[in-house]
Design a protein around this nucleic acid. Structure first.
Lengths: 169, 169
DNA sequence: CTTGGAGTGTCAACAAGGCTGACGTATCCT
DNA sequence: AGGATACGTCAGCCTTGTTGACACTCCAAG
């Protein structure tokens, strides 16, 4: 395709050999496995799966978020998300409050139990992330984040960058 | 848990605030989605899923690999892998040859068609990886790889590092 | 006030791709 | 000869994704 695709073509310029890129691809694959291993263990103890983890994580991050908002972040159908939310509400981990301004919307909050699960999950995941960060060092971390951000789709980057936007209950 | 878990505790020392770590976690989540988006599109055209991608990728990387070896790399059950391999063999993308030294083993190879799919998939994935690498720059890439390697489980790092070991057909 | 549409919940049916358990067969090794 | 190994396969179950269809509530525009 371009010069960097040929075996040694762009190496002097940009070191992007197919072999380098393949290593990066496999690194993503193997690392993502490690990344999810600990939460998966905890989730199975609670009888949940990754879908529940994602929901709990983003509800914790943005308390009061609406179902629709969650849908666009998670990128799944409402039927799929609803199944997960239903069990979380039924099990008392998530509270779904009817919106005050717009009563069609449901605003989602973690209960104490929900917060407990979230804490167990994020503690485990942070521990591994922290260990990796420490092993790699500050400069490596900066590079890590730069590459990951460059790998995201546009809309995902929007969600990624959005931290605080709603402060009302 | 330790000093870096408290809001500002370890920042001066290691900048590892919960917020920083959370950002890293979400970056992994969103980036992995981007990472798999292009292959997923191609796979659905061929009527396959990610499981087929993984099999095809590692057979391409290590032609003649055995089923057992593939199992340990992919970390799935033989029943699960077998279902995927069966369709790939039936569709003529993968060839399964009885071992010459040990006739119990089956050695796996891509056919021309299989290589064609692999090429389409890895081209797409490399394109995105290359774009991300270029956008982030060489130093960032080094850091990216360092952090990912530190995030892997032990056995995964072994597979990740193993490039060539078998040269015989 | 009526009506269209947005936001949400839910039922049903289906598929991919994990899992466990059990069994059979061929082959190798001791 | 007998146990271990490599592989395939059948059967059943679970999670999590999909479509399609339908109902309900409410806001806003006409």
């Amino acid at each position: 395709m371009d010069q960097s695709t040929s075996p040694q073509g762009g190496q002097a310029l940009l070191f992007l050999t197919d072999e380098q890129l393949r290593k990066g691809i496999e690194a993503m694959f193997f690392a993502y496995r490690g990344f999810t291993a600990d939460p998966d263990r905890i989730l199975s103890e609670w009888g949940y799966g990754r879908a529940h983890h994602r929901a709990v994580h983003f509800i914790h991050r943005s308390p009061g978020t609406t179902v629709n908002n969650l849908l666009s972040i998670l990128g799944v159908t409402k039927q799929s998300l609803n199944r997960v939310l239903r069990t979380l509400v039924a099990d008392g981990l998530v509270e779904s409050r009817v919106g005050q301004i717009d009563k069609r919307e449901r605003h989602l909050y973690l209960t104490d139990t929900g917060a407990e699960l979230e804490r167990a999950l994020s503690d485990a995941q942070r521990d591994r992330m922290r260990a990796a960060y420490r092993a790699a060092g500050p400069e490596a971390v900066a590079g890590f984040r730069q590459v990951l951000e460059a790998m995201m789709d546009e809309d995902m980057r929007r969600h990624y960058e959005a931290l605080r936007e709603k402060g009302k209950t």
